[in-house]
Simulated assay, not measured.
Amino acid sequence: MQPLSDPGTLERPLFFDGQQLYAEDLQGLEAHHRALRWLHNRSLHQPGVGNGLAVSGRRGEREVRIQPGYALDAAGRELLLGEPLTEPVPPVAGEPDGSPAYFDLTLCYPSDDDLEETETRDGVCAPRGAVRLRERPVLCWARLRPDTSGALRPVDDAQRLALEEGRVIALARAGILDCRLSADLSATLRRTARPTERPRIVCGTGPVDWKEWHAVAGDDDSALLGLRAEVSTGARGFRATPCYTARVDGRRPLVFPGEKDEPDVVLLDGPAYVQDATPGQFQCHVPLLVYAGALAGLPDELIPNARRQWQVTWYAIEE
C-alpha cells in the first residue's frame, strides 16, 4: 500500500463479535497503521540516513562493507538493515580513457517481489502461504558520468530521478579501476533524515535550457527583452519557498559578426533576477542590451551558445 497524502481518505478497520475475518481484513488493519506511520515520517523528516549504515572500503579492495542502520525515503518508508552486509564492487575496468569509473552505492525500499518469505504455513482447506516477509532494503550501484558542467550524474535517467526525488538514498561514492576501488570510499554525498536547523542556506550551479524572453509571454511579435530559463531546485528539499538570488556565469561579451559591411553586434547582459519562485524551482530572467551594431532579433547562434557557455549560479535562504 502506498502512503496517502491525505490522511482523511484512510478507512479504519473495525471488528465485531461473531464477524468472520479474512486475511485482507487483518492486512487492511496493518496497512492503515503503516500509511499513518509513513505520513508521520515524511511530514517530520526528510529523505536520508537516520543512523548507522556506515559504508567502508579501502583503496585496492574488491568489496565494500555496509553496517546495520536506518534510513527514510521520500515516501516516509523505513529502510532498515538489521545485519552487516558485504557488497562486491562493480566488475568494470574503468573509463575508456583509463580513468576510474564512478558509482554511487544506493539503498531503496523493496518491492513486494523482492521480499523474502521467512515463514510459511499450511492453511485450513487452503494451500500453504507466507505468514512472514523480511523487508530488507535493496542495495544497488548507480553508474555515474560527468554532465556538461563536469558534475557526476547517474547515466540511467530513472536512477537520476529517483535520487533527486529521494526515493533512493545514496550511501557512498566509489571510483573503480581494474575491478578494484581506486580510492577510499567517499561518504560526503550522504544526507541526514534529521531536518536541518533554520535558517538554511543552500547554493547550486549548472547549465540550463535558455529560451527567448519576450515582453508578452507567448506573443512572437512582442518586444524581445533577453533570455530566460527554468532552474530546478527540487533536489534540495525546500519545505517553503526560499529567498533566491541568481547570477549568470560564462563568457562575456557576446560578439556576433555583422552582415556584409555592417559592424559586429555586441550584446551585454544585464543583472539576472528571479521570478515565479516555488520550493522546487524559479525562473531566471536575463535582459540583453545592444552595445554596438544593429539588431533586429536574436542571432541564430545565441541560444545554442548560451546553452553551451552560460550557466546559472544561485543560492537560497530558507527561513
Rank of each mutant, 00 (worst) to 15 (best):
Trp314Ala: 00
Leu4Ser: 08
Gly280His: 08
Leu72Cys: 06
Phe15Thr: 10
Ser182Ala: 15
Ser43Lys: 14
Val312His: 09
Thr148Glu: 10
Tyr273Lys: 05
His32Asn: 08
Arg236Ile: 00
Pro242Trp: 09
Phe256Lys: 11
Val202Ser: 07
Trp314Asn: 03
Pro257Lys: 13
Leu133Thr: 06
Val290Tyr: 03
Cys140Ser: 15
Arg153Asp: 02
Leu29Val: 06
Pro13Ser: 05
Gln27Gly: 05
Val248Lys: 03
Asp112Tyr: 15
His40Asp: 14
Asp209Glu: 14
Gly234Lys: 07
Leu268Thr: 12
Cys140Met: 10
Gly250Glu: 00
Glu319Asn: 13
Gly226Met: 07
Gln27Ser: 09
Cys108Arg: 10
Ser43Cys: 14
Ala306Arg: 00
Thr245Ile: 08
Pro199Leu: 08
Pro96Trp: 09
Glu165Phe: 03
Ala54Val: 04
Gln159Gly: 04
Ile303Trp: 03
Pro88Thr: 00
Ala31Val: 01
Cys108Ala: 12
Glu61Ile: 01
Leu161Trp: 01
Cys179Pro: 02
Gly69Val: 04
Ala172Ser: 11
Ala170Cys: 15
Arg239Asn: 11
Val124Gly: 03
Tyr315Lys: 05
Ala240Val: 14
Arg132Ser: 13
Arg59Cys: 14
Asp184Cys: 01
Glu212Trp: 03
Arg153Gly: 03
Arg308Ile: 00
Leu177Gly: 01
Pro263Val: 03
Glu61Gln: 15
Phe16Val: 14
Cys203Ile: 00
Ala306Cys: 12
